[in-house]
Design a protein around this nucleic acid. Structure first.
Lengths: 245, 245
DNA sequence: CAGTGGTCTAGACCACATC
DNA sequence: ATGTGGTCTAGACCACTGG
């Protein structure tokens, strides 16, 4: 008979170093977009070899928590760059293949209290204060996506319609810069639904038209959930893309 | 003035080794599910160090072309295992979270000629012979997905309704075992559409009901396209899931 | 027990960016 | 010239598997 399933206590050194660096990132020791110390410096700091630090950093880079640039250094990942990292989590593209980032238009912003469902997804208690905001993404002036976004009020103190509307780029860049909330990962579930009258008007489609509903929960460090959103996408000129491996 | 943009000719050694191993995989030197030679053996064969072979193999493992198992060896990836690898490319899950693999039911199978669109996607010429098949995926006896699948006839000689219906598991396991065609990667584009009468009947929904349309092109080694399919999913009890990083 | 992949280290050198 | 990350090597040892 086999032994009674001894716990898998083994944890490689580079995994522990990775956790230490990740904790430092979470604590804000280095700002988004800024360089973290060199491999050599971190090796001295943690008392391990450079190769072990390298494996730790490469694991972090694999999860997009940092970005490595040969000859320059390793940088804390950010949503605020001019490049594709700005819209890292945007899976909506134009059908014709034209590379174009959408324009965001705020519809409304309100304080509210978390429903049981929202509370569960955000690890809050039912009735905890949240923000609810709606916005539309437009491609070439035409509305394509209507997002309803729920945020824990505790993490977004001072969020106002004005500050929100003033920001041109991506939502997550805004969250990162203004509130220090960094989105690292998100889970999505997609359904096909019929447009209700309200959404249909905002998306400029007929009521009842088929829409792509994208339900997302976004997480920051240590898998703490910090956003729940539902996006409704009119897939006339746009689509949701994905690659399977 | 800077030099006129010399071509980036640098290619790391482990990348070249990776390409050599990949070519051997493509040539069928080792069968799916079987072990490839050990790192040490491959290092001798290619005249490089074990560490370089390791990096090459880890790159292949990262793309799911092989699977590494500590203490056992490195194995050619397969779609025919009892585990999750059987339905590696299936992104449809039940809403209630119950882990359940669907049952596949063949609707029909026909020879046809590639349309311009299909030919383009499969790198064929318009009019080249293809197979067109339709099947339904059922969860707990209820139809959830209707797939229309186009395959180049040249790669699937001898495909018949009987052989197709006889196979219980995943489509790609069937393709791998019976025709030696290994699906390695796929691109998907999702739209929301209204159900036509035919699809609605097969999916047991009302005509005009919103459906999730999943358009997929699947590739084998060297990015050769070998399948085009459109899946129509009634997302009542199921959804399409994705993780963003 | 032997064989496999996994970890850790140390050193040398390469490619890239900046000064 | 210097400092960064990237590659390549060599060797030692660890964790896991199966005979």
């Amino acid at each position: 008979m086999p032994p009674p399933a001894s716990p898998p206590t083994f944890r490689p050194l580079y995994g522990q170093i990775r956790a230490l660096i990740e904790r430092a990132l979470d604590a804000g020791e280095w700002a988004p977009g800024q360089a973290i110390p060199s491999e050599q410096d971190l090796a001295i700091r943690f008392g391990v070899s450079q190769g072990t630090v390298r494996k730790a950093i490469q694991a972090l880079a694999g999860d997009n928590l940092v970005v490595r640039r040969q000859g320059k250094g390793t940088f804390v990942a950010t949503h605020t760059e001019e490049t594709a990292s700005n819209f890292r989590f945007l899976r909506i593209r134009r059908n014709d293949g034209r590379a174009e980032y959408p324009r965001s238009r705020l519809i409304d912003l309100a304080r509210a209290r978390a429903s049981a469902e929202i509370a569960r997804l955000l690890s809050l208690k039912t009735g905890d204060p949240i923000f609810l905001l709606r916005r539309v993404l437009e491609y070439g002036g035409s509305p394509a996506v209507l997002d309803r976004i729920a945020l824990p009020a505790a993490l977004f103190r001072g969020l106002t319609r004005e500050r929100c509307a003033a920001h041109a780029g991506s939502m997550y860049g805004f969250f990162e810069t203004e509130f220090g909330v960094r989105m690292l990962r998100a889970d999505e579930r997609l359904h096909a639904v019929a447009a209700d009258a309200d959404s249909a008007a905002l998306l400029n489609v007929a009521a009842g038209a088929p829409l792509l509903a994208v339900d997302r929960v976004a997480y920051t460090y240590a898998d703490r959930p910090v956003e729940v959103r539902r996006g409704l996408c009119a897939t006339r000129r746009e689509h949701y893309w994905n690659t399977l491996t």
